[in-house]
């Protein structure tokens, strides 16, 4: 992609349903933010600026598709974008929002809005790729700044960004952490896509699966492992569902 002068790469950020933590994580790139701005022109970023534009070289899309309006808007953004990147768990696989899908939708609406439940339309939660073509994905809840910068740089230089497709356990072992499963703590490290440098296990917290499952994961085998450590099938599926409702295929 071209850069510099008038031909700076036009970058836009869009947010659908989510917590905007990934947007915040971009603003938290305190040290790199100004450098990035020298190479690209941010043409839309509603959370931080007033400007709006018609077309984009790279569109970063955050959040899940959860209403009929979201569907219309994502089609419109796709039409105007050369490259579309899904950003964060909500966009890449529905994230925690998708937990809604395992409950009866009417009951869910009634629980929150009572008799006013039909006031606001809702549909099952979907990742962005369920509606439009997604060129690249940046995983995680929240996305890591390191991975964002890595993908961003690759795209600006016209390269194909690479993200890991192996389990968090690999990174955890490299950091020489004591295995949490060995300590009797439920951990989704064996099935979860790496790229976070095993942050949670390194802080003594179990992996909660926020980066999604690795491709072609043997879900039955991983559930066997969890059962071996004393967790029921139901419990294992429930925990795997936390960030991965749209990916977990095992039935209780």
């Amino acid at each position: 992609m071209k850069k510099g002068g008038k031909d700076k790469i036009k970058v836009a950020f869009f947010d659908f349903t989510g917590c905007e933590g990934c947007q915040l994580n971009k603003l938290n790139l305190e040290n790199d933010l100004l450098d990035i701005l020298e190479h690209v022109e941010i043409v839309e970023f509603r959370e931080a600026m007033d400007d709006k534009a018609d077309e984009y070289d790279i569109a970063f899309v955050e959040g899940s598709i959860t209403t009929p309006e979201c569907v219309t808007r994502i089609h419109d953004i796709r039409r105007r974008s050369k490259v579309l990147v899904a950003l964060g768990a909500c966009a890449t696989n529905g994230g925690i929002n998708a937990l809604k899908n395992i409950h009866d939708i009417d009951e869910v609406r009634e629980r929150v809005y009572g008799k006013d439940k039909y006031l606001f339309p809702t549909i099952p939660v979907m990742p962005v790729h369920a509606i439009v073509k997604v060129d690249y994905k940046i995983y995680g809840c929240p996305m890591t700044q390191e991975e964002f910068v890595k993908v961003f740089k690759a795209l600006v230089m016209g390269k194909k960004p690479q993200v890991p497709n192996y389990a968090v356990c690999v990174e955890c072992k490299l950091r020489e952490n004591e295995c949490l499963l060995e300590r009797g703590i439920f951990c989704l490290g064996p099935v979860t896509r790496a790229g976070c440098n095993a942050r949670c296990p390194s802080f003594g917290q179990s992996c909660i699966g926020c980066r999604g499952l690795v491709d072609d994961v043997n879900q039955n085998a991983s559930i066997e492992i969890l059962k071996r450590y004393g967790y029921s099938l139901e419990e294992a599926i429930k925990r795997m569902n936390l960030f991965n409702t749209t990916e977990v295929k095992v039935e209780p």
Binding site: L99, K100, R109, R111, V112
Partner: peptide, 8 residues
């Protein structure tokens, strides 16, 4: 868009 956390 509503997110229905209380139900989740």
């Amino acid at each position: 868009a509503p997110r229905y956390f209380e139900a989740i």
